[in-house]
Amino acid sequence: MLKLSKKGDLIILITVLAAAVASCAVFFIPQKSGGTVVITQNDRIVYKNSVYVNKTVELGDNTVLIKDGKVKMQSAGCKNQICVRHKAISRKGESIICLPNKVIAEIR
């Protein structure tokens, strides 16, 4: 194994290892948030605006709530309610889909 015969070596070693641990912080930077909410119904865009504009979008059976940078399917008339149970989305690339009603709310 390494002979750490000198004190200076040990200091350098520890410094670099500490830097390695500290640089793990890069894994905790959150992914890109913000962006544009695009709601489509039957493949037609019915709403497109910044995610930071608070709005309640009503589309017949579905109600999409955009509030404080988060998008949630507030209610829907579909049977499985998967879209309603979906966690609020806030980052680019995320989407909530109501398949029976063909409503897609996504953040681009």
């Binding site: 390494l2 002979k3 750490l4 015969s5 000198k6 004190k7 200076g8 070596d9 040990l10 200091i11 350098i12 070693l13 670099v16 830097a19």
Partner: peptide, 19 residues
């Protein structure tokens, strides 16, 4: 630069250089 410091042998220089 690191070699100027006291108590550093080539092992330490190697680590610093590699880093």
């Amino acid at each position: 630069g690191v070699s100027r410091l006291k108590g550093v042998s080539q092992v330490g220089m190697g680590v610093a250089g590699a880093a």
